[in-house]
Amino acid sequence: MSNVEEQELKDRLSLIESMISEGRRTTESWGWTFVLWGVAYYIAIALSAFGPSAIAWPVTMIAASVLTGVIGSRISARQPETTTGRAMAAIWIGMGISLFILMVCLGMTGRLDLRISVAIIGAMLGASNAISSIILGWKMQFACAVVWWAAMVAALFTTENIAGIIFLVAIFFCQIVFGIYGMIAESRRNKARAAAQGAFHG
């Protein structure tokens, strides 16, 4: 075998490796969902404080879920389905349904208390962020999980008013700031990949 033929075979092998890793790399965008849900939490808090408090959270959460589904299906319509994408959806949908049912039931039975609510939300979001960060290998998201866990602990050892402030601060950093950071990082990643791609011919 000549050196040219050997090099061609090596090129074929590296082409296979690069294409497999390119396909596995998730190109789905998650940053916008954090911002959307952060805004939804703020709207729900504002509505429950100044408007119809009993239905503020359920209505806002259902509206945010519908909006996430509609925008998500439009964004991912042309993306391939990957195991990572399905794992991400499974974590957040599972967490969302659990949290929704629990909070509605706590509200209906009159056992809802702000400190307990913040602790439950902190625990659930901490777990979901931690699992996502490990799957995606995204260290910054693990920092969000730590903030939610810290909020969970702090809320249980303080007054209701301070627990409310802790919740607002955690939403700001873990949803709004992290979401915007995620959107910027995803945009940079996609631009870098687009620039690095070359054409293949028959």
Binding site: R12, I16, M19, I20, S21, G23, R24, T82, F200, H201
Partner: peptide
């Protein structure tokens, strides 16, 4: 063939892929 090899490798890593996604990944 280089393009066919690239396509099969891409498809081996996803469950299914749309024509436009394959086009963007292979720049063909």
């Amino acid at each position: 063939g280089k393009l066919r090899l690239a396509l099969l490798s891409l498809l081996s890593s996803v469950e299914e892929a749309e024509f436009t996604w394959l086009r963007s990944k292979t720049a063909s």
